[in-house]
């Protein structure tokens, strides 16, 4: 028998040896029990690694990966080569600009009000806050929300606890939008909640919910346009609501009405 190398032994573990050599190694191992024990431990490792990670193969693909795969399923001819990615990049760029702009405005206002010492000046109005939060998070492919809708119960518990009052996301299935999930955001003086919804085409809208309006005057439905984002907002009791999306005003009004009706009924 030619000399047995470590490579032979590793290949034996992986069943990569052709029969004549394999039998030679079998014979060698019969005479070297320590080596045999070592190689059997390696085989056990291999089986255990497969047992540990094979279940990943059967997992449902996360939505972002599925989306990517579906993008890839389009024929190359019909698909502007990087359209998907440049759209994301543009949205991200827009988010960046809007935040920068908001920073500038807030800074300038802060300056103007500096002598009066009023912090109020730095507060962004509700629709602006909501629109920025929408533009920042809704294009996020990987993690648009902190807690996904499949854990709705935890989401509700968590956000209610952080906002210090029971809140829950309205159901918008009837107008074609399903809950994606929600996240906690910093508002002007404390936590605010954002719920995200998506329709069958992937169009997203966000409901921004603050409890910073205690003592403020209640308002009816109001409409604001912030860049490409349309916002319906209203203040009721201690709650401020703002519904944002890059969709047509009339369609958004329909959704806003559905939200309003549900909140109204919930009381």
């Amino acid at each position: 028998m030619s000399q047995v190398s470590e490579t032979d032994l590793q290949a034996w573990v992986d069943a990569r040896l052709a029969p004549p050599r394999r039998h030679e190694i079998d014979a060698y191992l019969a005479e070297h029990p320590n080596q045999a024990e070592r190689l059997r431990a390696y085989q056990a490792q291999k089986r255990a690694i497969k047992a540990l990670f094979d279940p990943v193969l059967d997992e449902v693909l996360p939505e972002n990966l599925r989306t990517l795969a579906e993008a890839s399923a389009m024929p190359a001819v019909d698909r502007p080569k990087t359209a998907l990615f440049s759209r994301w990049s543009l949205q991200r760029l827009a988010a960046g600009l809007l935040v920068a702009l908001l920073g500038g405005v807030a800074g300038w206002l802060g300056h103007a009000q500096y002598q009066s010492g009023e912090r109020l000046a730095q507060m962004a109005p509700l629709p602006r806050q909501a629109a920025v939060a929408h533009v920042v998070y809704s294009p996020d492919v990987r993690r648009p929300v902190e807690v996904t809708a499949d854990q709705e119960e935890q989401l509700v518990k968590w956000l209610s606890k952080r906002l210090g009052t029971p809140i829950s996301p309205p159901k918008l299935g009837a107008v074609g939008y399903e809950l994606v999930g929600g996240r906690l955001l910093p508002g002007n003086s404390g936590p605010v909640a954002q719920f995200m919804y998506q329709d069958a085409s992937g169009q997203r809208l966000t409901l921004y919910l603050t409890t910073e309006n205690a003592g403020k005057v209640e308002t009816g439905f109001r409409f604001a346009r912030e860049g490409q984002v349309n916002v319906f907002y209203w203040v009721e009791g201690k709650f401020g609501y703002a519904l944002s999306a890059g969709i047509d005003k009339n369609e958004l009004a329909k959704v806003a009405t559905a939200v309003y009706d549900q909140l109204d009924r919930a009381k």
Partner: peptide
Amino acid sequence: DSRAIRAEMPRLRRYARALLGDRA
């Protein structure tokens, strides 16, 4: 065949999970 990439995804995920440990 663009479905081919999709077919590889479970295996890519399995390897990445084993390599990094962390799901996200």
